[in-house]
Simulated assay, not measured.
Amino acid sequence: MSFLGLVLGSIPHWLQFIEERGGIKVLDPRKFPSLYEWTQKFAETPLQLKERMPKKDDLINYFRTSQISA
């Protein structure tokens, strides 16, 4: 796995968070089948890096609790 692969591999993780938080679909498997397939393969890669990435639910809870009330 190259350095660029590791950097780009973190993007789908954040896209999932954005999709759930914003209620929008960013990475559509019908429009971008190759990119979607690559992200799924990367997510299945057994890396120690994957263990250190924040869980999607933890990100959502963090942003929910850290929002400033207007």
Rank of each mutant, 00 (worst) to 15 (best):
D57F: 00
A43M: 06
F3K: 15
L59A: 07
G22M: 15
V7W: 10
L35A: 11
F17R: 03
Q48R: 10
I60N: 02
Q67S: 04
F32G: 00
R21D: 12
E37Y: 08
G23M: 09
H13Y: 11
L6D: 11
T45E: 09
Q40E: 11
L27S: 06
K50W: 03
K56D: 03
R21E: 15
T45R: 10
L47S: 06
R21P: 04
P54H: 07
E51P: 00
S69C: 03
K50V: 06
M53G: 01
E19G: 09
R52E: 14
R21L: 13
R30S: 13
F17D: 10
S69K: 13
F17V: 07
S34R: 06
S66R: 10
S10F: 07
L15C: 06
L4T: 15
L35K: 04
L59N: 02
K56W: 02
S66Y: 03
I11Y: 10
P46L: 00
Q67L: 04
F63D: 09
L6I: 12
K50A: 14
Y36Q: 03
E20A: 07
D58T: 11
R52S: 09
L27P: 04
E44P: 01
Q67T: 04
P54C: 11
E51G: 04
T45M: 08
E51K: 12
P33N: 03
K50H: 14
A70S: 08
L8I: 08
R52F: 12
L59W: 07
R64V: 03
L59V: 02
R52W: 06
W38Y: 06
L27T: 05
S2E: 14
L47R: 02
L8D: 07
D57Q: 10
S2C: 10
Y62I: 05
S66V: 03
R64M: 02
W14G: 13
S10V: 11
L47T: 12
F17P: 05
P12M: 06
T65M: 05
E19V: 02
K25L: 14
S10N: 10
P46W: 00
P29S: 01
L47Y: 02
F17A: 07
P46F: 01
A70T: 08
T65W: 06
P46V: 02
E51S: 06
Q67P: 00
M53E: 13
L35P: 00
L35W: 03
N61I: 01
L15P: 01
V26L: 15
Y62R: 08
L15Q: 12
K31H: 04
G23H: 11
G23C: 11
V26C: 09
K41E: 07
H13V: 11
S69V: 14
I11E: 12
L59F: 08
K50R: 14
W14M: 12
K50N: 11
I24S: 03
E20G: 12
A70M: 05
D57T: 07
I60M: 09
I60S: 06
Q16F: 05
L8F: 15
L35H: 03
E19T: 03
V7L: 15
F3Y: 15
R64L: 12
I60C: 07
Q40Y: 01
Y62Q: 04
E20Q: 15
L4G: 13
L15I: 13
G9W: 10
M1D: 09
A43K: 13
F3E: 15
I18T: 10
